[in-house]
Structure formats: structure tokens, C-alpha cells
Design a protein around this nucleic acid. Structure first.
Lengths: 141, 141
DNA sequence: ATTACTGCAAAGCATTTGCAGACTG
DNA sequence: CAGTCTGCAAATGCTTTGCAGTAAT
């Protein structure tokens, strides 16, 4: 595992554990849980205590370096590097694979509560379905 | 608390605890957690064990009588009577009040992953913002 | 050297489960 | 009366926290 990141967040003390966590998140194709990171670190020969992982994630979230990714049906909390982009995810109900969705259905949507009862400031969308592999393997049921 | 419901789900054994849970859900204006139901039952002088509440909810969900309501930022699982309607909720970030949204942004939305990589079968939308009361009290900031 | 970070183990919280007694149909 | 439901208490799984040692600047 390559430990050096292109740029290290300002004002953040650089430790082996933090480098490992951020590198894993950087290399990941989908959001990761604390347990994922624990396993990933171990697999890379850089074991980190689970509690430390939780603390790093909490700290990095506060620093704006990582964000929670709300993914449908995930029992654990998932994290990813903060891209400052508006993102949503689709989850395969079979294999749990997570896929990014780039466009957003809320872009031009006005909830029928908007003007009167509620001022919308944010949202979170979770999409379920079948990924190409799993859909194929069940004959486009 | 009125315990009698208009109609009792078919093939479901009627017990004091189940009647209490369904009545509470029926009377609720927003989805309830197991803890809410526990407190509500106690407040009505009809204490139910928490584990029983969980079992009732699980059972009633399997029967299609209740459904989980996915609400943004809720740490607990929330349940409501199954209206068989497509619903989403908005949550006030100040007071945590939950408000139903009747229209759905996904109605005419095609995720840009749809045709190629993913077949969408369902979704879940969580909306954040300020309810009328809380928005007013902070001067439409 | 100072202050923050880490690991360990124990605690915390929501939810689940085993078991024996209670109740419904 | 048989089979299911309930309560209790203990167990589980994820996440958090206290504390003492360790490491980064």
C-alpha cells in the first residue's frame, strides 16, 4: 500500500494511522465502514485499533476531509473522502455493491410542503435495485 | 386510550399488547420508534415489554400491517401503519419534527446509471430543513 | 518537551434472542 | 387444550469513552 498522499490536509497531524485511513478511503471505489477500514488496514499490514478508526473518522469529518455517505440499507455508517460534490448512491439488493449516481432527482423538485410548512435545506436519496451482474444472473426477472 | 381498532388484520391473534401498539401507531401523526411505543404504552397505562414491542413490529411488518419509515438522521428505526402509499418525509433539523411529503421527486427521474449498469427497483428519500415554527423563530435566516 | 494521538478494555445503546410462564382462539 | 405470545434477562453488534502509554511537531 502506498502511504504517501498527494496533499495532506492543513492543520492535521500526520500519523501512520491517519495516513492509512485516508489512503484506504482514497483508493476505495465505494464508501467504507469503520470495519472495512479496520480490515483494509490489517490487510495492508498496518493494523489500526477500531476505536482509533472511529476517532479518526469523527475527526476528519469535523475537518471536512471525509463525509458520511448515506447508503440504503447499510447497517453500518459509511465514509468517503469529501469531494464537495453532490452525490447519491444506488445499492444492489443482491450483492450490496454501491454505485455512484451523478444526477440528482431533487434538482428541480419542489416538495409540496415547501412554501408553506417547511424550508428544505438538504436531502439524501437512497436507491435500490439490481446491478448489471446480479440482474443478468437472474434473467432480468 | 381507545383500544378498539376499526378493523383487525386477518389471521393475526389479538392481544392487549398488539392492540396497544397498533392503536398508538394509528393515532400517531408521525412514525414511531420502539422506544416511542414503549413510552406511549406506559403513558396509556398499558405497559409492554420492549422486546415484545420489537417482536410485534417485526411480525406486523411481515404481515404488511406496518412498515419501516426511513427518516433522515434518525438513530432508531421508525414504524408507521402501512398505508400502501408512496411516502417520503421531511425532518426539521432543529426540533426533529417529521412531516410527510406527498409528491415524489423520483417519479419522472431517470438515474444516469439506469440503462447501462443498474436496474432501479426502489428508492428512499430523506429531506432536511426547517419546519415553519423553527424557521420562524430564527428569522428565516 | 508538550500536546495530541493511539490502543486496550470496558461501557453504552438499540435491537435480538432463550426460556419459562401466560394467554388467545 | 395446543400453540402462540409475552416478559425477563442476558446476549449481540456497532460505536463510544476512560485511561495510561506513545508519538508528532
Amino acid at each position: 500500500m502506498k502511504t504517501k498522499m498527494r496533499d495532506w490536509p492543513a492543520g492535521v497531524k500526520k500519523t501512520r494511522q491517519r495516513q492509512t485511513v485516508l489512503t484506504l478511503l482514497e483508493q476505495a471505489e465505494a464508501p467504507l465502514s469503520a470495519a472495512d477500514l479496520f480490515a483494509g488496514a490489517a490487510a495492508a499490514g498496518r493494523e489500526i485499533s477500531l476505536s482509533t478508526i472511529y476517532r479518526i473518522l469523527e475527526y476528519m469529518e469535523k475537518k471536512g476531509v471525509v463525509t458520511k455517505a448515506e447508503v440504503a440499507g447499510s447497517e453500518r455508517v459509511l465514509y468517503e473522502l469529501n469531494s464537495f460534490r453532490h452525490k447519491h448512491y444506488a445499492v444492489c439488493v443482491i450483492c450490496r455493491r454501491i454505485i455512484s449516481v451523478d444526477n440528482c432527482p431533487m434538482e428541480n423538485f419542489i416538495p409540496n410542503i415547501a412554501e408553506t410548512d417547511f424550508r428544505v435545506t438538504g436531502h439524501n436519496i437512497e436507491i435500490y435495485g439490481y446491478c448489471r451482474d446480479c440482474d443478468g444472473s437472474r434473467g432480468r426477472g
